[in-house]
Every structure is written in structure tokens, then in C-alpha cells.
Write a protein that binds this DNA or RNA. Structure first.
Lengths: 260, 260
DNA sequence: TCCATAGTTACTATAATAGTAACAAGGTTA
DNA sequence: TAACCTTGTTACTATTATAGTAACTATGGA
């Protein structure tokens, strides 16, 4: 018999996590009212939750302005959690090794619903820095995104297309479903995807999907990112296609093992 | 009037965070009973909390074995929180720049009570990898630790000495309070500390404290880490003492600004 | 097959939370 | 300066959620 779904769900915990998650790169300081409004929690309850987080050290409150920000405990907590993600430690040595051999920036992402989550990234010292998103729904504009789409099942793909805003990042960004579909069909066949300055000017990438071999479902993707002044689409493919797909295959085995 | 301290504290949230924090690098999989035992929460409550985390995606449960591990949401959450730590973004460019100029591994830590918390670390590609702790109480054996101790106030220092186990990592590790005290007194005067293979064989470090200039309290420390086959204590000091203290000073200004 | 252990569900007294309302503290505008 | 916001804090309960006991199921070893 299935129990009342409310009995084994702690709403207070959910709310607390929502509040903590409100602090990110672009919002390192927040006020109580702001939190209350954004989280949709009444002011007193927000006060209690925030107060709890302050007492525990996850948040710190400026005595005068009352402004809230993440505390040292949150920093440790975040680090600990990321390090506790098992797959990260399985994937890291493979990517590090490939990075050493190829000296390119390598990015790995996991798919969670319609979202790409950053898993591990190793930057080539030469590559210029760009701000990489931790979570992205712009699958149409990234090599990893297109790699994932190329192995998505029909229904998920339709869901994606129905909601996809096709946000335009550069002149090269694909903004039509028909073009995208044609491309990912090609990617599916050849096993890798290309991002030719579609996300950021000057950046050309080659991606390959990560598969769970047991379930046959796509689990994420990796990409090699390079500067356009050193590579063309053709030279990128001839140089790296073999290595990306090889690495993706190796990582896929880990993913499969990990998820079973 | 001060309110009943229990009224504005959400215990459920505290427990949920304790549970999430149980997953770290060395414990990526846990069972319900294990969690219940470690967190000191009765089994049914643990079940409710864990179930909540599973439903929210912070944990994932293996359908067969029931083993729990962190879910994708937790990875994103951890990343988001770390990135949301304001000081990190203020400190990062300074350390990156110093790293570029000196081509050394630079480590930065914050002090939280008697514990050093990893803030940001930039590795020189040449340095051999060693597993850096996210949180450490072994202040006696690290350059950053001794830098912090050299600026701690008397009472905190006594607290530290009273509890310090003086764990021995290498033959060089200081294991006597008297030796440590003499050294940090010297460090206080000259403004930097040295770790001569006291934590790890083959690793020599020079550290400097981070101060909050407004309160006069020590806020953390930085260190430059180098291989012993390239440096002696003398050459390390003559090459880097100026630069570590300079960088520590610059970062201290940020810390001061940030904490006011 | 039996036993031990881990996980799940039912149940309910008790404790915790939600939400209203009132108040205090700053800051802003007139 | 006064009036008026807005934000944060506290008091007060009705209501709800949680803790904890106990029973049950599932699973994997002896």
C-alpha cells in the first residue's frame, strides 16, 4: 500500500534548501524580504529558516544592514557535496589524462531532464577564460547539448523542442528547429557534434554523448573546446573526432557501471 | 526582549543538512541505517528526511540495493553554493594573477574557529598532485596553519594548544607545543611562515596570514607550495617571501572590505 | 529454512510550524 | 522635522507536521 505522500516528506527541509539555493554567483547577498518573496514563504517562516541557517553558520548576517550572505559552513558544505559526487571521481582521471595528452579544454556535463549540469571541466592553460554555466537549458547552442539531443528519445526530444526558446547567442546560433533536427540526425550517425561559434565567438567545440549502455539512454556529454584562430571545423574533426568519441566511450562505461 | 531560542530554529532543516553533509569524498554511498546511526536520528525520521531528499533529487536511491548517493541536484547545488560565496570571486583574480606571474601552486584558506577551510587553490601544472583537505584542524603541520596561529589571539591560541593532538605526518612535523610556539613567534615578527616537509614529504611551503584590518583578527592564510627538489628554505624565502606577504596583504584588504 | 538485518508503513501524542498581527528600527520623502 | 515607507523582529495560537513506537515486508546470509 502506498502511504500518504505528505507523511514522508519534510517540507521544512525543502524550504531551507530552496533558500540556500537562492545564493549563487550573481546573488551573493540577499535580504530577508527578498528571500521571502522569491521562495514564496511567509516572512515569519522565512525568518525562522534564515535564522536557523545563520545559527548553523550556513549564512552570515551583517549586524547593521541585516544583509545575508553565505557563511564559511556553506563553502565547506558545497565543496564536500561536490566532492561526494561519486561519478566525479570516476570521470576526473580520464579527463585529466586526455587533457594531458591533447592539451585541450575538456568539459563534461550530465543531463538532468532538459538541463545540462556541469560535472567536471579541465581547462587548457592557453584557452581564454569564459564563464561556464553550472546548469544550462540552451542545448541547441552547445556541442554537449547537441550531442545529448542526438541520442535523446523521441518523446524527450519533442518536449525539448516544444519549450526551446532557441536563444541566439551569436550570429551562428541555430534558431530553427528544422536546422537543428537535420544536424543532430547527422551527429547521431557520425557520433559527435560540432559547435562552430554558436555559443561564443572565437570558440569552436567538438562534443560526444555519454551513454548508459545498459539502459540505452543518454546520460550526458563531453566536449573539447578550442579557439577558432587555431582550428576550422575540418581540422577540428580530423584532429579530435577520434579522441572525443574514444573518451566519451570510456566515460560511458563508467556511467553505466555507476548507474547500475 | 529575547525570544524563546527554540521558536526561531527549524530543527528539521538542521537534520536534513546534517544528512546531506554525511556524503563526502570518502563516503559517496550510504545506507539508511548508517545515516540514522551517524546523524543520531531515529529510523523513521531519517526515512522521511532521506525520502524528501530523494524526491527533490538531492539524493538518489538504488532501486534494488536501496543504497543512497548524491543526486544530480546535489552536484548543481554544491557548485552553486561554492560559486555564491562572495569572497571567492574577490580573491580568485588576485590568486590567478599571482599564479600567472610566479607559476607556483597557491592555496588560500579561511579560519573558522579552530578549523582551516579551503577557499581557493590554483595549481601549478608542474606540481605533483596531492589530496588537499577541504577542512583541516592540523594547523601545526601546515604553512597556512602556522600563519594563522601566528596572529591568533591568546585565548584562541590556548584553546588550540589545549586540544591539539599534534598529529605527526612526516618526520619533520612539529610535535611539541614549545617548538611550535617559538616558531610562530618568529613568524609573527617576520610576517610569514614556513612548512618544510612537515605535512607531506617533498613539499615545501611559505605562508602568510590574512587579516581583517578593521577588527585586527586573523581571517585565514595563503601559501605558495613548491617541490623540495627545487627549493630549500633559504631559496624559498629569498624568492617568494616578498610576494606571499604582498599577496596576503592585498587579499586582506578584500577580506576587510568584505566583512564590514 | 530460519534468522538477522534493512527498509517501509501505520498510528498518534507531542512538538514544531504557519500565519496573523503588532511593534521596532532605519531610511526616504515631503 | 514629521510623516511615511519598508524591513526586520517578536508574541501568540490554531493547525499541522514530526518523532517515535511498533508492526510488517523484503532480502540476503547462515
Amino acid at each position: 500500500m502506498v502511504p500518504d505522500p505528505n507523511v514522508y516528506f519534510a517540507k521544512t527541509l525543502e524550504k531551507g534548501l530552496i533558500i540556500l539555493g537562492l545564493f549563487d554567483k550573481d546573488h551573493s547577498r540577499r535580504t530577508l524580504s527578498e528571500i521571502s518573496r522569491l521562495a514564496g514563504i511567509n516572512k515569519t517562516s522565512t525568518y525562522r529558516l534564515v535564522n536557523t541557517l545563520v545559527l548553523l553558520g550556513y549564512l552570515s548576517k551583517n549586524a547593521r544592514s541585516k544583509a545575508l550572505r553565505l557563511g564559511p559552513k556553506a563553502l565547506l558544505f558545497g565543496h564536500t557535496i561536490v566532492q561526494g559526487y561519486e561519478l566525479l571521481h570516476m570521470v576526473k582521471p580520464l579527463i585529466d589524462e586526455a587533457h594531458r595528452l591533447c592539451n585541450v579544454t575538456i568539459d563534461s556535463t550530465l543531463v538532468d531532464g532538459q538541463t545540462l549540469l556541469a560535472l567536471y571541466r579541465r581547462e587548457a592553460s592557453s584557452t581564454f577564460f569564459f564563464r561556464q554555466p553550472l546548469a544550462s537549458e540552451d542545448l541547441h547552442a552547445r556541442a554537449t547539448g547537441k550531442a545529448v539531443l542526438s541520442r535523446m528519445d523521441q518523446s524527450d526530444l519533442e518536449t525539448f523542442l516544444a519549450k526551446a526558446p532557441f536563444k541566439k547567442f551569436t550570429p551562428n546560433t541555430i534558431d530553427q528547429a528544422s536546422v537543428l533536427l537535420r544536424q543532430i540526425e547527422e551527429d547521431r550517425v557520425r557520433g559527435f557534434s560540432i559547435n562552430n561559434e554558436e555559443y561564443l565567438q572565437g570558440l569552436i567545440c567538438i562534443g560526444a554523448p555519454l551513454m548508459n549502455f545498459q539502459t540505452g539512454k543518454v546520460a550526458g556529454a563531453i566536449s573539447f573546446d578550442l579557439p577558432t584562430n587555431e582550428y576550422t571545423v575540418e581540422s577540428l574533426i580530423s584532429t579530435y573526432a577520434g579522441q572525443v568519441t574514444k573518451l566519451a566511450n570510456d566515460i560511458s562505461e563508467l556511467v553505466t557501471m555507476n548507474e547500475s
